[in-house]
Design a protein around this nucleic acid. Structure first.
Lengths: 231, 231
DNA sequence: AATATAGCGTGTCTAAATTACACCATTAAA
DNA sequence: TTTAATGGTGTAATTTAGACACGCTATATT
């Protein structure tokens, strides 16, 4: 028997595509829904915008309530406004993305009852998601793939100190292709915004690699006139 | 005395930044408002989304009602959702842009009473616009400036047949800088998507230039794998 | 102590792309 | 026929991108 759900008028919602990088794999944050419609389905963390909050504020709040994550730097990337994207009524959703470091210790866990749980899932074998969330995810993934070329977003996914090999395997995960080690290093170092530290990797059973830091200040200086326009 | 306006709950709206190119100048389409708030102010063409239309459909309809223009290829570029961006209540607006040829003959003219008139205005000395429309315009202008580098959007602004000098001066208008003539031509022609016609410019009092066409089919072939990613 | 293992770190050559730069040719109008 | 305005063209120098392979070093194992 089909459940009859109430309907509602226009509402805005937010959906979040949160990328993390762990064990050489690119992941996104999903929730298991605890409400109709799509109860028990997997979905992007998302909910309804309140009357008295900006959409940027709403994105922060909603992500916190559904996953316990706070203070991410989220950016909107597209608004989805098909008439029938939500079965109960008109819902236009603004999609945001963020990239964060997954810390082994920090658990993701819903703060409200709206989600049963929150967890990381590899981007590679995603199941079908609730609503049009699969489409939202794809759009977001393409956005960051493109943005990787002209914005320093990769560093948000890595620990503060990282090796060049880690950086490269992250690029490979996002772009989904192999890169040449020597050329990759040459290029990254040539930008001049990586700071070589006096420290090395620890706890590996092979020659330890040098650690680097992303130097935000240098980056800003170098890329003030960033746009690589014609001529 | 201040007019007391009614308030309303959440609504979605659309605002359009429509670029045109005429007489060597980049222009956008503005309306003069005929309703409170901001009656008599200049604004971007924009209005409220209906319950039963997608936002893409709404953008088309609204632009038509306010300017008489139809069948443009509009693309959303950002959603503005500050709480107080509209004095009467919560309005979240999805901003769209389009680029079109301004045909001397084709007049722009509102179809509804919501706008007193519609007209083209140079992007260079825009007055302050209603609501946060100045900000919306700036965001949109930056978007197309960036998009010019990797999408063939310039050709939407030119007549079907154009000279290389016209193309160059359009680039210069959007990027707001001078380009080198020989290098510009070399580069544009090297892409291979410009079709040289057997025709020349007419009605000029100097040596007539060759006319070219943008060949959409060739472009599509060449730029299937367009992204210029790392390596 | 010797050896195996796994990933670290490095340089050169070639091809392609980008930039800087100046003058003669053509047309219409005066 | 002269003038005014824009059209159209090439080369050299520099920079950037891409292909490509091996010895080094830290640890673990025996």
């Amino acid at each position: 028997m089909e459940v009859k759900l109430p309907t509602f008028d226009s509402v805005f919602s937010i959906d979040c595509v949160i990328f993390g990088f762990d064990a050489g794999e690119l992941k996104i944050l999903l929730i298991e829904r605890n409400e109709e419609p799509f109860k028990d389905w997997l979905a992007l963390p998302g909910y309804i915008v309140e009357q008295d909050e900006s959409i940027d504020d709403a994105a922060e709040r909603i992500l916190y309530e559904l996953t316990g994550l706070r203070d991410l730097h989220m950016q909107q990337f597209h608004t989805f406004g098909e008439v029938n994207r939500h079965p109960q009524g008109r819902v236009i959703t603004v999609a945001y993305y963020a990239l964060i470091r997954i810390n082994g210790q920090k658990e993701v866990k819903p703060v409200t009852q709206y989600a049963k749980k929150a967890f990381w899932h590899s981007v590679n074998d995603l199941p079908k998601l609730a609503f049009d969330h699969s489409e939202i995810f794809n759009t977001g993934f393409n956005k960051i793939r493109r943005r990787l070329n002209y914005q320093p977003i990769a560093f948000e996914l890595l620990p503060e100190k990282f090796t060049l090999t880690q950086l490269q395997s992250l690029y490979e995960a996002i772009l989904n292709k192999k890169l040449d080690k020597r050329n990759f290093r040459k290029k990254m170092l040539s930008y001049g915004f990586l700071k070589e530290l006096d420290e090395k990797q620890k706890g590996v059973s092979y020659r330890a690699a040098k650690l680097y830091k992303f130097d935000r200040r240098k980056y800003a200086k170098i890329f003030q006139n960033e746009m690589n326009l014609v001529q």
